[in-house]
Design a protein around this nucleic acid. Structure first.
Lengths: 161, 161
DNA sequence: AATTTAATCGTAATGATTATCATTTAAGAC
DNA sequence: GTCTTAAATGATAATCATTACGATTAAATT
C-alpha cells in the first residue's frame, strides 16, 4: 500500500492525520521487509523528534494493528510490528537475526481438514524461523533459538522479497 | 510422557528433583490439553504453598522450555506454556477463549518448497486460533480477535484430544 | 551425618506497556 | 482565515510481567 493510499484509508476510518502518526507510518513504510520493535521505532524517531512519547507510539501501533494495517509477531523475546509488504495473503520466513521477512507462497490452511464441527476459525499463524543467507555469514545462531525444541526440516529453494 | 519418566529424564540431565520442581511439573502434567500462563500456575500452586516465589516458577518454566520439555506460545496478549500432549510432532488448533489445544495432523513443512539456498530453518510455528465448540456456547469472541486481520477459511471435521 | 552446590526465597530492580489528565492540534464549520 | 471541538499528544506516574541478587535451604552424593 502506498503512502497516500494509506493515509486516505486512515482518514476514511475517521482518524486524523497528525504529524506523529505520519512519522510513525512513514517509518513503518520504509521497513516493510522486516519486523521492528516498538523500541527501534521510538529510537529512530526520537533522533529527529525528541519529544515523541512512548504513549503515542504504542497508541498508534495498536490503532494500526486493530484496524488491520499492521501485523504483530513475537520472537526472540520481543514483540514486533510491520506493515505487510503486499496486500495478498501470505506467510513468512522470518530471520531471527535481522528480523527480515521473506514471503512464502505456501499457505497451509487449504490442506487442513480436521477442524471439527462447531469450531470457529478466526486466525492462523504460519511462520518459519531461521537465519537468512545474509546473516548466516559472521553471526552465530542466537541462544534462544538453539535451546528450544527444534524442528528437523529439510528445505529447498528461492524466496522473494 | 508420564510423570516418572519425566522426572527420570530431568534427573539424567543433571537437574535436581526438588519439591517445587515436582509441584510445577505435576500441575503442568495435569493440564496438557491447554496452555496456561505463569500467573495461573503461580496462583494455583500458592493455594497450597503460599511461599512459592515468582522467581522459582519462571526459572523452572524456562529451564523446562530450554530443555525442550515445554512449549511456549503467546496469544490474547499473554505468554503461555504447556507440556506437549504427545511426543510426536504436531500442530494445534488453539481456543483463544479457554486456551485448550486440539491436535491437528497436518504439518505444512513438507509442502514448503521455496526456502532459498543459504537459509537455515530452525523452527516453524503453525497454529490455528479460534473458538472451540465448548466455548462457543455462551461466550463472545474476545475483542482482540475480532480486531485483527482475520483469515477467511472454511473448515471441515473432527479433532482429537 | 557431612559436604557440596543447585535450587529456593524474599526482595528489589528492570523493562515493556498502559493510564491519567492537562494541553495541543487536525478537521470541519463558519 | 478564524472558530470550534474532539481526537491526539506529551509528561508523568502506574502497572504488569519478568529478571537479578544475595542469603538461605535442601537434594544428591560421600
Amino acid at each position: 500500500m502506498q503512502r497516500e493510499e494509506f493515509f486516505e484509508s486512515l482518514k476514511r476510518k475517521g482518524y486524523r492525520l497528525t504529524g506523529r502518526r505520519k512519522e510513525i507510518v512513514d517509518f513503518l513504510l520504509s521497513q516493510t521487509d522486516r519486523y521492528i520493535t516498538a523500541k527501534e521505532l521510538i529510537e529512530h524517531l526520537q533522533k529527529r523528534h525528541p519529544t515523541l512519547s512512548f504513549e503515542t507510539v504504542y497508541r498508534n501501533l495498536h490503532t494500526l494493528r486493530d484496524e488491520g494495517f499492521i501485523e504483530e509477531s513475537r520472537f526472540a523475546g520481543e514483540t514486533r510490528f510491520r506493515i505487510p509488504c503486499c496486500p495478498t495473503h501470505h506467510h513468512h520466513f522470518v530471520c531471527i537475526s535481522c528480523g527480515r521477512t521473506y514471503v512464502m507462497d505456501h499457505c497451509p490452511m487449504p490442506a487442513v481438514e480436521d477442524i471439527p464441527e462447531g469450531f470457529t476459525v478466526l486466525q492462523h499463524r504460519f511462520e518459519i524461523f531461521g537465519i537468512c543467507a545474509g546473516c548466516r555469514q559472521g553471526r552465530e545462531i542466537p541462544d534462544w533459538a538453539e535451546s528450544r525444541t527444534p524442528t528437523e526440516v529439510t528445505s529447498s529453494t528461492c524466496p522473494k522479497h
